[in-house]
């Protein structure tokens, strides 16, 4: 389900150019064969979650692939960001800066099939992606991806954040 790219292979030049040749098989987006049960405290307070209800007939969908390979599909409303959605459903996505594109804790890896449908990242987002752990060719920030009709069905994976992919300093 998840193959983390070795840090030595992290992309060297800016976004789209070499993607199709080199970096496609970073993560397989096929359905997982094993679903690992996950500990969930029933008493965990919900810290975030300002999700909108989709209007009838205007429901959009998105799928998150969690670190253990589990897939979660949600019905969501137009305008909510992937960060809003992840936090609203208590997924492991931090959003330390409160969704203002000032950290890289909402880093997601977008299914290449959907990546080109997204508007290009701006300078602020790119500056933060520079610092993201386990960066890939289709990495984006969850706070900068707003749900709309064009990307209905988008699939994103949460990156592994471990010391293996940590650069020593920056």
């Amino acid at each position: 389900m998840f193959k983390v790219l070795p840090s030595s292979l992290l992309l060297k030049s800016s976004a789209r150019i070499k993607r199709n040749i080199l970096y496609k098989p970073i993560i397989s987006f096929t359905s997982p064969t094993v679903v690992t049960p996950r500990f969930l405290s029933t008493t965990l307070p919900r810290l975030h979650g300002h999700l909108h209800k989709p209007k009838p007939g205007e429901e959009l969908h998105c799928t998150f692939i969690l670190k253990d390979g589990t897939q979660k599909k949600f019905t969501v409303a137009k305008g909510d960001t992937l960060l809003d959605i992840a936090q609203g459903h208590n997924l492991d996505m931090e959003g330390a800066c409160g969704g203002s594109c000032a950290c890289s804790t909402c880093h997601v890896i977008v299914d290449p099939e959907y990546y080109d449908l997204l508007p290009e990242p701006d300078d602020d987002e790119n500056d933060m992606l520079d610092l993201a752990y386990g960066l890939t060719e289709t990495s984006r920030l969850g706070c900068c991806i707003k749900m709309n009709k064009d990307i209905d069905g988008i699939r994103v994976a949460l990156p592994q954040m471990t010391r293996n992919v940590q650069t020593s300093d920056f």
Binding site: L44, P45, L47, E94, A96, C97, G98, S100, C101, A102
Partner: peptide, 29 residues
């Protein structure tokens, strides 16, 4: 002039508020 970086304080505050003794009524573990 980087107030957005300090937004992590809001997360800290939310959970400190939720877990701090003696909020009493909470049934958190």
């Amino acid at each position: 002039d980087h107030p957005e970086v300090k937004n992590c304080e809001e997360t800290f505050t939310q959970f400190a508020n939720a877990y701090t003794i003696p909020s009493g009524s909470n049934n958190l573990m």
